[in-house]
């Protein structure tokens, strides 16, 4: 309630003294002018209590509702005006952001060089161990090159992660189209990694929940320094790993309970957490969105509890500057966890 200054001060003084200064009646009197008129159904019963307000509202309505008509049209006018100006503002903002993002991406290009990316993240206090990204399939996959574009984006992000030293990457794509082509995804991603790293490319494993991973075969000449090899594991997830996986878990639990194999008290947050992180994935530390605004589009709900969510306002498409800013933002953010 936007109380008037004087009333607010009275209220706060009363509050400081533990609400002993005023009686409930006085407080009601203080707040009364700010309340809306009582609902029509209550009018009859309240007439005795508030004869004045009931009368005034009736008078204000007018006999033919002319006032109401004018008021409504006035509001519509203001509404249109607000949206007119807002659409100008938002277009200007989008244009502004588009230009600045272009400039950003020109100056902060990775030039496909792992050394440059490594230098970019060198000063950061901490890096996410598990990075999540949300990618979208354009036009719902109807245009022919949508899948190819998706693969390219995934390849670039995988290469940036490998360069920055992030060991785990999970790629969320709503429809789950990538899950059908895991060997192809592996090939595309490792080709891009070789482009970045040359012969010293990291070992890549691509997996999806309930699907065994496809791993890069380690060439013989690199077998010797097996432990020093860089590794990157990529997990492909989709909308079915969100709500549906929780539903599947419930089904299993219900069946087990029907067979009296578990008790209801066995179902705890820890059990569900263990099951879901085992069969789907654990919590990502950082989630980077490449869309213009924050919308999770069915991302697994259980796993985003404490995930830092990063997006660049009005951004369109995957870009290295978004990735880099996301990492910088993550390094700055501090965790407090209810404290």
């Amino acid at each position: 309630m936007s109380l008037k200054k004087k009333d607010l001060q009275t209220y706060r003084r009363d509050e400081q003294f533990g609400h002993r200064l005023m009686t409930p009646e006085e407080r009601i009197r203080l707040l009364k002018p700010y309340l809306p008129s009582p609902p029509p159904s209550l009018n009859d019963s309240n007439k005795k209590l508030l004869p004045k307000s009931a009368e005034t509202t009736q008078a204000r309505e007018g006999r033919f509702g002319v006032r109401r008509f004018l008021k409504k049209n006035f509001y519509l006018l203001v509404f249109t005006a607000i949206h007119f100006f807002f659409s100008i503002y938002i277009r200007a903002r989008q244009a502004c952001h588009a230009v600045s993002d272009r400039v950003y991406s020109l100056f902060q290009h990775h030039h496909s060089s792992p050394e440059l990316i490594e230098r970019d993240v060198k000063g950061l206090k901490r890096l996410p161990k598990h990075l999540g990204v949300i990618l979208t399939l354009e036009d719902q996959g109807r245009s022919g090159d949508a899948l190819e574009k998706l693969l390219n984006e995934a390849g670039e992000i995988a290469a940036w992660c490998a360069s920055a030293g992030i060991p785990e990457l999970s790629i969320y794509e709503k429809t789950g189209i990538l899950k059908g082509y895991i060997p192809e995804v592996h090939r595309a991603l490792s080709t891009n990694l070789q482009r970045y790293f040359g012969s010293n490319y990291p070992i890549l494993s691509v997996a999806a929940p309930h699907i065994p991973p496809v791993e890069t075969a380690i060439p013989r000449h690199r077998m010797s320094d097996k432990s020093s090899l860089k590794r990157l594991s990529v997990l492909l997830i989709s909308a079915e790993d969100g709500r549906d996986s929780i539903v599947d878990l419930t089904k299993t639990l219900a069946e087990m309970s029907q067979r009296k194999k578990i008790d209801d008290t066995d179902i705890t947050t820890e059990l569900i957490d263990a099951e879901l992180s085992e069969s789907v994935m654990g919590e990502p530390d950082l989630l980077i969105l490449f869309g213009p605004h924050v919308e999770l589009a069915g991302y697994p709900p259980w796993q985003i509890r404490l995930t830092e969510i990063f997006h660049v306002q009005d951004n369109q498409g995957v870009g290295y500057q978004v990735f880099k800013r996301g990492l910088y933002n993550y390094a700055r953010a501090n965790f407090r966890m209810g404290r």
Binding site: G242, R243, H293, V294, E295, L296, A297, G298, Y299, P300, P301, W302, I304, R305, L306, T307, E308, I309, F310, N329, A333, G338
Partner: peptide, 17 residues
């Protein structure tokens, strides 16, 4: 910029955050 364990089930689909 975190959800911090609030309405995860309700907000992960079409909600504007």
């Amino acid at each position: 910029e975190r959800l911090s364990d609030f309405l995860l089930w309700q907000c992960h689909q079409d909600t504007h955050i």
